[in-house]
């Protein structure tokens, strides 16, 4: 296997690299793990105290869920694998609060996080517009999740091209949405693949 970095566009949050000496099945496995198995943070549960804005609660919550949050994979674990047993604790969930009264535009900057490392990737994402006498007050919970469960948990856009059908070369492009760097996505994907293969071989051993 031969890996070459073709370009690293930090401003666009994108890397391109070529991998040769692998078959299509391996390339596609890498692509699927990078895009749908690498966990990232997103708001998953919202409790509304007040919402007199024009957006219905469910639409509002859906918008909140789609906001990409900077993710620290070392400090947080998936809720399903956490030692709290899925109940939700400080090492698998992050609480957010939002309080605003009109007239104003509510931005992601108004979303207050309990953990300063986990915050929206941009401050200027408009969430809702409020008129006079309209207000929102809510508490939201963000968790780690996988892209195969909901596309809000996708770390980015990942695809590969095959420049020459006769050669086994694949040109991968990894474009991150900002939660993780493209480098982190690739490294985490390979770690995940190794642990999945180990789990598989353990299971096969049990069968013998």
């Amino acid at each position: 296997m031969d890996i070459k970095l073709i370009s690293n566009e930090e401003k666009k949050n994108r890397i391109t690299f070529s991998v040769s000496g692998i078959d299509i099945a391996y390339a596609n496995t890498l692509r699927r793990i990078m895009g749908f198995e690498v966990p990232v943070m997103a708001i998953d549960e919202v409790e509304f105290r007040k919402n007199s804005s024009i957006l219905y609660d469910e639409l509002f919550a859906h918008r909140l869920g789609l906001i990409p949050l900077t993710t620290d994979l070392k400090a947080y674990t998936m809720t399903s694998e956490c030692k709290c047993g899925g109940a939700g604790c400080a090492s698998c969930t992050v609480k957010f609060t939002l309080k605003a009264a009109g007239p104003c535009t509510v931005y992601t900057a108004d979303l207050k996080s309990k953990d300063p490392d986990i915050k929206p990737i941009a401050n200027k994402i408009p969430i809702v517009k409020l008129l006079e006498d309209q207000e929102v007050e809510l508490e939201a919970t963000a968790t780690l999740g996988k892209g195969k469960d909901h596309s809000k948990y996708c770390p980015g856009l990942i695809f590969y091209r095959i420049p020459d059908q006769d050669k086994d070369e694949f040109i991968f492009t990894v474009e991150s949405w900002g939660q993780l760097t493209p480098k982190e996505i690739v490294i985490k994907a390979i770690d995940l693949y190794n642990s999945q293969l180990e789990e598989f071989s353990e299971l096969v051993k049990k069968l013998e």
């Binding site: 401050n123 200027k124 856009l157």
Partner: peptide, 20 residues
């Protein structure tokens, strides 16, 4: 209604650019 947070097709977050 209001600008979508992400692109429907590719998923890229775009809403932060709308006001500019």
């Amino acid at each position: 209604m209001i600008i979508p947070i992400r692109c429907f097709s590719c998923g890229k977050p775009i809403a932060q650019h709308w006001e500019e």
